[in-house]
Structure formats: C-alpha cells, structure tokens
Design a protein around this nucleic acid. Structure first.
Ligand SMILES: NC(=O)c1ccc[n+]([C@@H]2O[C@H](COP(=O)([O-])OP(=O)(O)OC[C@H]3O[C@@H](n4cnc5c(N)ncnc54)[C@H](O)[C@@H]3O)[C@@H](O)[C@H]2O)c1
Ligand SMILES: NC(=O)c1ccc[n+]([C@@H]2O[C@H](COP(=O)([O-])OP(=O)(O)OC[C@H]3O[C@@H](n4cnc5c(N)ncnc54)[C@H](O)[C@@H]3O)[C@@H](O)[C@H]2O)c1
Lengths: 217, 217
DNA sequence: CACGAAATGTGACGAGTTTAACAAAACGGA
DNA sequence: TCCGTTTTGTTAAACTCGTCACATTTCGTG
C-alpha cells in the first residue's frame, strides 16, 4: 500500500480534466490547432494560471511563446481519462430520469455506454429502450458478472437507494453515481457519488443571490 | 482588501445547506424533535465538527448539552434557502432530459417548479407534459416576462446553447443551469452553472481508479 | 441547588487549492 | 543569427476549508 512513487495529482485538477478534454475536442473540431492558456481560460472559465498548473502535473505539455498543441493535449488527456478503454455501465431504475439517460446513452462518447438496465416494476421489465432491454432485479447479479461491469448509475427513488446500492455492491459494483440524495451506508472501498438535481438548482439560486457583492475577482 | 463586510459564508457551507435541510425535514417527518451534531453526522455523512462549524455561521443555533431543535433548524435554513418563496423556473429544450425534469418537476419541493417550457421543434410544441404546455421559442419573452421568472434550466444540445442562453438573458433571465457543457459568452451579471452528466461519470471513474497506475510518470 | 455529563462553538493548525509574480524558454520576424 | 515578444512552468504567498482540542455552556438528576 506504500504507493509513493506516483506523482500525486490533486483531486481538483483531476475533476477539471473532463472539462478540458471536452473543450479541447470542440476546439479541434472547429479546426483549432494550437491554444494558449489565456484563450483556453476564457473558453473553460478557468483561470489561465490554474490551467497551466493543472497541465504541469502531467509533464511539460506546452512550449513557451507558442502555447499548447491541441491534438497533443487531447491525446494525453484522452489516455488519462481512458476514453479509448470502453467503459460499460449498468443502470438501475428506469423511470423518468433513467429513461432519459438510456435514450441518450452518452451518444457523443463512443466508448462510454449503458449496456444493461434493471428495474423492479413489472410494467417496465422487458421494455427495449435504445437497444437495451430492461431486466428484473433478480438478473442483476448474473448480468453484470458476465459483462464484467463495476460501475453503475442509480436513478431509483431515495427510499430504495440503500437497498439497491447494497445489492449492487454485493454483486461486484465498486462505483455508483446516484441521482437520489439519500445518504447510504456502504463498505469503504465503494466509490459513491451523488448528483442531486434539486440541490443543484437550490445552489444556483443561493449563489446568485449571495455571490453578488463578493464576486469581484 | 479588508473584506470583513458581512460575515462571508463559505461556499462549501452553502452547498451543504440543501442536504442539511432535506435531512432535517425527513427527521421531522419521523417525529424527531431534537438532534445532536453526532447523529446528524451519521445521517448526512458529514463530520459532526463540520456540521457545528457550518451551523455556527448562522448564529448560535444549538444549546450545549442538548443539541439542536429540529424545527428551529428547519425554520432557519428554510428561510436562507427561501423555500417559502415560490421559485418558478423556465425550461428550454424538451428532449430526453427536459422531459424527465418536467415529468418529475421537483414534486418533492412544493415551492419549486418548472412553470413553462419551450422548444424549437414543431413536433414537440403544443404537447402537454405534467400540466405544462410546450411553447414555441417566439413566446419565450412574453411568457417569462408575465410570470416574472429569472431562472432557467437549459437542456438544449451544446451547439444551441450560446444562442439559447443569449435569448434567455435578453429576456430577463439571470441564472441558468445548463446540462450541455458548452462554454458560452454572457454578460458578467449572469449566473451560469453547468451540470455535465458525462463529466460526472468520467470523474466517478477517475476517482475510483486512485491507487492504480494510470497517472504514473 | 449542586454537580457530573453532554454537547456546543471556536481558536488553532494543517492540508489542499488558487493566484500573483517572474525567470526561463521558445517563437518568429528581420 | 539576433533580438524583442510571447507564453510557459514554477516559486512563493494567499486563501479556503476541514478537523482537532478544549473552554464554555447547558442539561438533567440526585
Ligand atoms: N427527474 C427529476 O427531475 C428529478 C429531480 C430531482 C431529483 N430526482 C431524483 O432522481 C431519482 C429518480 O427520479 P425519477 O423521476 O426518474 O423517478 P421515477 O419514479 O420516475 O423512477 C424511479 C424508477 O426506479 C424504480 N425502482 C423503485 N424502487 C426500485 C427498487 N427497489 N429496485 C429497482 N428499481 C426500483 C421504479 O420502478 C421507477 O422505474 C429520484 O430519487 C428523484 O428524487 C429526480
Ligand atoms: N440525456 C443524457 O443522458 C445526457 C448525457 C450527457 C449530456 N447530455 C446533454 O444534455 C443535453 C440534452 O440532452 P437530451 O438527451 O435531452 O437531448 P435531446 O436531443 O433529446 O433534446 C434536446 C432538445 O432541445 C431542442 N432544441 C434544440 N435546439 C434548440 C434551440 N435552438 N432552441 C430551442 N430548443 C432547441 C430540441 O428540439 C430537443 O427537443 C445535451 O446537450 C446533451 O449533450 C445528456
């Protein structure tokens, strides 16, 4: 467990990588070959200094007086984000939100896809959405084992989350993204992440009121 | 730079308020009258010390040797979050995601609701979803003016975001939550917030790989 | 009413993160 | 090739946030 040789990359830097990657891909699509931190800063709304520091954790990616090569950055970040490695996901809870995710199914990311879906409601089981057939919960274990999936998205209601996530973990899932804000108790090795749409809206409203005076950067 | 004007409330504290509020409401529903930071900590998965520090920014809300009065906390936080003030929202882009938001429509928060929806697709316009009729973009200005709305959710694709958000701002919207990760250029007084589901999943995968190589160099 | 128990509110510290400032490096035109 | 300009990578300082530790306050009971 003494894992000291790997250069430790700050959590905040890692969390900005997807943003950088996506923005760079857009720029490349528009034909942009090179970019300087200042311009990438206006595109991403991140301070140029922060961008340069972030990039520096992955080596000397740029050239002074020139900037960064967009293609090179995309290659490097794509490798770190493992966008080439197919990332298969399971979905539990095919309601309003689950259905939306399934219909879109990350169509812009060819290597990321929900490949199986589960629900407890007999009225939904068997339905085919975007080439994925909704399966009963009883088949969850066998399916994710055979597909070797270790990451799941949960769009079940709060009151089912504890039970559902425990079942997911029992069957080998190690990372869960939940859209229900219910805190759950799980083994420490499980990576649980919440995405509460209601809180996001509340935060938007909060920050827009109070941040008024103080945001003088 | 002596910025000791109002007691500035840390951003992280504010972002936890919705979690506290919801948890406290659940506790109240179950009949809990009082709570100590330790128990609220296990319920929210937040360190008790952090909870006490957070609460302290809003005054001395608790009593030593006793804990906090649940009803009192709910009142205080409800006021800060303005849950009593109805928060009406506009939605633009009634696709997969927009439809899901509209169908659910924050049903657990009685004072927060999407009250109007807009789309450019004639095939969607006129459709009624959860008592909201999808309107054409041409009516956006008049509708949000008459309803006095200043906050919007955008679920239009990336390539439409700049155009759509500019139109929203022109018509009085001051806060936007976008599900498309496209950076846009808007006046400074606009509060723009992104919620990129793809990035969220990538982050989940990235963080779960801590301990494995991936970033060695 | 007094006293041990319980729980809060906060000074202090440290880890993590952002930002300003600048020296060094590389570009590109003459 | 030379030189002013541009832009990076990084050092150091500022800032934010979470947690320890504990003095303080209040509870609840004998
Ligand atoms: N859709 C939104 O706009 C929105 C907004 C805020 C929060 N949320 C949260 O997202 C979550 C999902 O929202 P939704 O609108 O899709 O809800 P939904 O009710 O439409 O869908 C939930 C699905 O989960 C299934 N389910 C329930 N219990 C289950 C179990 N034990 N095992 C397997 N499947 C089970 C149900 O059959 C249903 O299909 C909810 O927790 C909700 O609070 C949604
Ligand atoms: N649904 C997902 O799982 C998912 C995942 C990751 C990202 N996203 C992002 O969320 C956004 C919405 O996703 P979706 O699946 O709902 O897409 P969608 O294509 O189903 O819906 C988009 C809607 O916006 C409308 N629209 C397009 N241009 C418009 C314009 N100029 N004015 C008004 N309306 C316009 C369309 O008519 C359509 O109804 C996309 O940017 C997508 O990249 C979605």
């Amino acid at each position: 467990m003494t894992n000291q040789k790997t250069t430790r990359i700050p959590r905040m830097t890692l969390s900005r990588l997807p943003l950088y990657y996506r923005t760079l891909c857009n720029l490349a699509d528009e034909g942009t070959r090179r970019i300087k931190s200042a311009d990438l800063g206006t595109a991403t709304q991140v301070e140029p200094t922060t961008i340069r520091r972030d990039f520096s954790y992955f080596g000397e990616l740029g050239r002074s007086g020139y900037g960064y090569d967009v293609g090179h950055l995309i290659r490097i970040f794509g490798e770190i984000l493992e966008v080439d490695e197919p990332q298969y996901l399971a979905l539990v809870g095919v309601g309003n939100l689950g259905r939306a995710l399934l219909k879109n199914n990350f169509r812009r990311n060819p290597n990321m896809a929900i490949v199986c879906a589960f629900d407890a409601d007999p009225g939904v089981i068997g339905e085919e959405i975007n080439q994925v057939i909704v399966q009963p919960m009883a088949e969850l274990g066998a399916t994710i084992a055979s597909l070797q999936i270790n990451t799941a998205i949960s769009t079940v209601p709060s009151h089912s989350l504890q039970q559902v996530s425990a079942k997911l973990v029992d069957n080998g899932i190690r990372s869960i993204l939940s859209f229900a804000p219910e805190p759950v108790i799980l083994p420490e090795f499980v990576n649980m992440r919440y995405l509460d749409l209601t809180s996001e809206v509340l935060n938007l409203l909060l920050l827009s009121e109070r941040g008024q005076a103080a945001v003088a950067k």
